[in-house]
Amino acid sequence: MHPLVERFAALARLSQVQEQPSPAHLPGLGKCAPFTAVTAAEVEGVIGRHGLRSEQVVVTRHGVVVPAAQYTATARIDRVPLPGVVRHAALFDLVESGHTLALPGCELWLPGIAVLCDQLRSALAQPVLAGLFLTPASETGLSVHTDAYDVLAVQTTGSKRWRVFAKRPEPVRNAPVDVSDEPVLDVVLQQGDALFVPRGCPHVASAESFSLHVSLGVQAMTAREVLVAAMRSATLSADLDAPMPYREVGDLNDRRAAVLRRASEALLTGLSSDQADRVYQALSSSTTTAPSPGRLRRLESAAEMTDSPSWPGTAP
């Protein structure tokens, strides 16, 4: 396991049981692969090589999100319209004018980051996301906000000042927050530094210089999500599909309550058994797992061996 993933997992476990968790500055822990490979040239190459769609790009400045129509267009592939394709020139024009570029799901194009996501997902048995943020010097992409997940930010280029405030209740992803208190942590991340921000802690980051950072987030599944997924599982008790009683003479509420009580007991019994593993696995799994390098090359090599002519003196 990558040392930074191990440290992040430990901090996330601790923050989940603390009433008032603390952010943590981790200087120098990101001065290693795969973060050293996340450079401006690599990001520009990713944007240029891949036909990014509007869902894969977010552009902001001072908390205001730029409508995707300003940097996307409809492309055509064999006369089939493909809406929401990013126009690279328009995107870079916005960055040059001071806007922050965010690429959620960056593990799709950065195999090393995908490996870290897999390790973190395995360590915590929770959904994991990754994002890449590019901010011009002296600019702020998002205003003070909270995230509904624990975050590890790793500075890969330049420097960025982070101010983190005490945790608020009921965190909502990217929800703006009014803060009048002093930050509990005010730190400038340099290249290779990392920062842990607990779920629900308001924070704001401003670039001191041209800045690139990668964020890993643990989106802890909620009890509601688990219960909904469990109720949809075909492996659980048939009591969950019991019909609700018709109205007739007698206390309808009592009969309804009896049916719901049996269903609830069946649901909890199912969640405490091995059947629950499939529910948790489905919620924590991802379609963006780390790639397995060399598979196409091995396929090509196998085809070359099959198609190659026999040597003299050997059987055809």
Score class of each variant (00 low, 15 high):
Val59Tyr: 04
Arg53Phe: 13
Gln126Asp: 15
His99Lys: 09
Lys167Ser: 14
Glu42Lys: 10
Glu44Cys: 06
Ile113Asn: 03
Leu101Met: 01
Arg163Ile: 14
Trp109Lys: 02
Leu120Phe: 04
Pro83Gln: 10
His99Thr: 05
His50Ala: 00
Asp150Ile: 03
Ser54Ala: 09
Leu91Arg: 04
Glu170Gly: 09
Tyr149Gly: 00
Val64Gly: 11
Ser54Glu: 13
Thr135Phe: 13
Asp150Pro: 13
His145Asp: 09
Lys167Phe: 03
Pro67Phe: 00
Thr60Lys: 07
Ser159Trp: 04
Gly141Tyr: 04
His145Tyr: 05
Asn174Val: 01
Leu108Lys: 13
Gln119Cys: 11
Thr135Cys: 10
Arg163Val: 05
Phe133Glu: 14
Lys160Gln: 00
Leu142Cys: 04
Thr157Ile: 11
Val115Trp: 00
Val59His: 06
Arg87Ile: 02
Thr72Ala: 05
Leu110His: 10
Cys106Pro: 05
Thr100Arg: 15
Gly84Trp: 12
Thr157Arg: 01
Ser97Pro: 07
Val144His: 04
Val115Lys: 14
Gly51Ile: 05
His62Thr: 14
Gly45Thr: 03
Trp162Ser: 15
Gln70Glu: 12
Ala69Arg: 09
Val95Arg: 13
Gly84Arg: 11
Ala125Trp: 06
Leu116Thr: 00
Thr157Lys: 01
Ala166Tyr: 15
Leu110Arg: 01
Gly45Asn: 14
Val57Arg: 06
Gly112Asn: 10
Val59Pro: 07
Ala41Asn: 05
Leu124His: 11
Val65Phe: 03
Ala75Phe: 02
Arg76Phe: 12
Leu120Ile: 02
Arg173Ile: 00
His62Gln: 14
Ala130Phe: 02
Pro127Gln: 01
Leu103Pro: 15
Thr135Asn: 08
Asn174Leu: 14
Arg163Leu: 15
Asp93Thr: 05
Val64Asp: 14
Lys160Val: 02
Val144Trp: 07
Pro169Thr: 03
Leu134Ile: 11
Gly158Arg: 02
Glu42Val: 04
Val66Tyr: 12
Val86Arg: 01
His62Glu: 15
Trp162Met: 11
Pro176Met: 02
Leu134Gln: 13
Gly105Tyr: 00
His88Met: 11
Arg121Leu: 05
Phe165Asp: 02
Val151Arg: 01
Arg53Thr: 09
Phe92Trp: 15
Ala90Lys: 01
Val46Met: 13
Gly51Arg: 07
Pro176Gln: 09
Ala123His: 07
His88Val: 14
Ser159Glu: 06
Ala148Met: 00
Ala137Leu: 02
Leu103Val: 12
Ala137Cys: 10
Cys117Gln: 08
Thr157Pro: 07
Ala90Tyr: 00
Val43Cys: 11
Glu139Thr: 13
Ser143Cys: 14
Leu132Phe: 12
Gln126Ala: 11
Ala123Cys: 06
Ala130Tyr: 07
Arg121Phe: 00
Trp162Tyr: 02
Val66His: 11
Ala69Gly: 00
Ala102Gly: 09
Asn174His: 06
Ala166Arg: 15
Gly105Gln: 07
His145Ile: 05
Ile47Gly: 10
Leu124Trp: 12
His99Ser: 14
Arg76Asn: 07
Cys117Met: 00
Trp109Ala: 02
Leu108Trp: 10
